[in-house]
């Protein structure tokens, strides 16, 4: 597997992806690739992308997240976007951004609860 862009944690058959770095376009795309590879390698059923450290999410990043979730779904995997900061959430809503195909949660606990309760 290629060099990891972000460190990830496997929990049960879920993958936790904490994003702590500044997201430029190349990084976002690299994270996408890394996630998909890990889903395959580690038989992941659900991914939790933790963005609690991100203070700016623009339309491109939102779009890429939706895209990632759609790709993961095709590999049989659900996605939870965890920890969007309140101000970031308001900005996204006021811009009119619609992030599709993703579940939202405030913390890791809820994220896992959500993934656990999805019957596939």
């Amino acid at each position: 597997m290629k060099q990891k862009v972000v460190p990830t944690i496997k929990l049960y058959d879920y993958l936790i992806v904490p994003v702590q770095i500044e997201l430029d376009d190349t990084t976002v795309e690299a994270i996408q690739r890394q996630i998909l590879e890990e889903i395959e390698d580690k038989q992941i059923r659900g991914i939790i992308i933790d963005v609690s450290m991100i203070d700016i999410i623009d339309s491109y990043i939102s779009y890429t997240l939706s895209e990632t979730a759609a790709m993961a779904r095709m590999m049989g995997c659900h996605t939870v976007l965890c920890g969007i900061q309140p101000h970031v959430a308001l900005t996204l809503a006021q811009m009119g951004v619609n992030i599709k195909g993703i579940h939202f949660a405030m913390d890791l606990e809820s994220s896992i609860e959500i993934l656990n309760s999805i019957k596939d």
Binding site: E22, L23, D24, D25, T26, D55, I56, I57, D58, H87, V88, L90, T91, Q94, M95
Partner: peptide, 30 residues
């Protein structure tokens, strides 16, 4: 490409210095 990040961080600092609220700083940077 990295200049996109540079630009938004710079604007974030300026907006903060000018006393904008956190919500507005986020909007401006975005």
């Amino acid at each position: 490409e990295k200049d996109i990040v540079v630009a938004r961080q710079m604007v974030k600092d300026i907006a903060r210095r000018l006393g904008f609220s956190l919500a507005d700083i986020t909007k401006i940077s975005t």
